[in-house]
Nucleic acid binder design. Sequence first.
DNA 1: TTGTAGGCGTTATCAG
DNA 2: CTGATAACGCCTACAA
Lengths: 353, 353
Amino acid sequence: MTEPRTQGHAALTGAAKKQARNGKSHATIYDIAKVAGVNPSTVSRALSKPERVSAKTRKLIEDAAAQLDYQVNPFARALPTGRTNTFGLIVADITNPTFFDIIRGAETTATLRDYTLLLAESAESPVTELTAARRMMATADGLILASPRMDDDDIRALAKDKPVVVINREVDGVPCVIPDVGKGISEAVRSLAGNGHKKLAFVAGPPRSWMSARRWEGVQAACDWSKLEAVRLESSKPTVDGGRQVAREVRASGATAVLTYNDLLAIGLMQELQAAGMVVPDQISIVGFDDIFGADFTTPPLTTVRSPLGECGAGATARLLDLLSGRGEPAGTLRVETELVLRGSSGRLLPLH
Amino acid sequence: MTEPRTQGHAALTGAAKKQARNGKSHATIYDIAKVAGVNPSTVSRALSKPERVSAKTRKLIEDAAAQLDYQVNPFARALPTGRTNTFGLIVADITNPTFFDIIRGAETTATLRDYTLLLAESAESPVTELTAARRMMATADGLILASPRMDDDDIRALAKDKPVVVINREVDGVPCVIPDVGKGISEAVRSLAGNGHKKLAFVAGPPRSWMSARRWEGVQAACDWSKLEAVRLESSKPTVDGGRQVAREVRASGATAVLTYNDLLAIGLMQELQAAGMVVPDQISIVGFDDIFGADFTTPPLTTVRSPLGECGAGATARLLDLLSGRGEPAGTLRVETELVLRGSSGRLLPLH
DNA sequence: TTGTAGGCGTTATCAG
DNA sequence: CTGATAACGCCTACAA
């Protein structure tokens, strides 16, 4: 009486299942078609645009797919469409915790929207970076470059191919997400000035870093405004070690307050200064940048200008995904606010004796 | 006289280049074939197995490819071969710095061997994890699971499909990479015992964590051997916050030494204890686990049992890649040594008054 | 050594 | 709404 009209479908056993798949490890839309008694192209349609298929056959197909434990083959799908639901993230240095937050933010919003994240690093090298970018471009639907070291032109060239979003740097004609250093820095400098400091040293980051240049500009402007003298010091590398190494120059500079390009430098600097017997913040105030993981592990905990890196990663990803789905403008910069996180490493200068 | 026999090849101009590609955004082996004056299949061969083509035509083809700025289409390649030079890494929690090192190690050795890393997280959920794993299996050549939360059976099922390597857990029949906690823990306990401690509290990690169980076993064994009393305390979550929350119980336990499931717990615990006026290590010794980034930022810097997480990531990746290229055995556990990193947070107990 | 032909699993374009 | 058929770009027997 209620014999199924589509033979095989409801009665599919484990054995039949295997047979239907014809020994292949994965079921294809052909297998589904056979089981559901329809044409493969109908299966394809039912799976990718369900609204263009009658409810009845859709159900038929979905059931068959479920029974066969069907999974689309992304390559086969990518071949005609050119899309993979995948995007690349290239960071300048995996070793640097700054990027952890960015990665995290990107991964989270990616998964949320059913995209997979491809990760690579450039090891701070423009060449490696470009290579990695090219490779990813082949596989991914789009690209996010965090603190890229390659030329603006290279970035624009990439962006002509597929959507590209840049983090921590502004490139003309390419959508960017950057922390706006102005607010955070001026808060920091004002706080320092309010605590009686007269001379501030800025420890710079990598020469090729766009961000480092912006931060130094911000520092100069804020110091100007607050009538502080500002000097710029070079660091060998933007790491804890680099911070340690720059300690001598900091002392030599005569500054009583230091603002570093990033937290790593600040932490290294503080360790070295403390090891030399200086008391932070009584004798010198130290302010970092970014508020990375662990910035509050130190004693005293580090005062720092927080960049919402997680937000940057998430924002860039959202931006990219919008671009991929046709929404959103092709260029323009998204600015996220920075703010001072006042902790123990900065404060009032104590009279020497 | 030396007129090129393959017309078009040497004389290709920018315009011709575009034309050869027929308006398409990317050159294909057909375009190369046309330019080089050979058959597409020869191009394919020349590119994938250069030794099976005469030096002359190879050069011809390579030049043409270079001129056309050819890049293989990974999907087209993956379709017949089923391989993508890509592998997935799923971590339990991107938020947890423990995994930073693993990710870093994996990415580094992946790039070195010309593989691309796909990253996803499970948010500590077995279900999410399985979903992510399935999705990646479709795209990737293999999978690495770091601290997986899903069932052994699920893992084995995945491993039947494609190569899978597990980090931080031992699963029968699946290749694993795990830090061998024995050495590190016994070093830690011996050091504590040598400093006069009689009672040690172990703060456990997530209930589903295989590693947490192993560490507690190790602690018990070592304490037994060193004639220390060991008690086990639960933590709400393996984070800094979790560490803060467990501080009360630690004090109530009467233990003078604490070993925590991970560094995050140790750091939170230390912060809370210090905030309550306790002096570390004079009144209580704290030993963490893993030696994560930032473990030495604290004051005193954290004594910890180092797990070479970077090595784990790198080792697992190497293992996977070997498997993928046919080398290496399909199962077996790779153990990496742990060791005590003696820093300031542990030491001799001072008499109370 | 090189060319020919068929297939990998899906989507897209037409007819029906 | 559904079915046939031709791409998509590359690989790989097999034949020349």
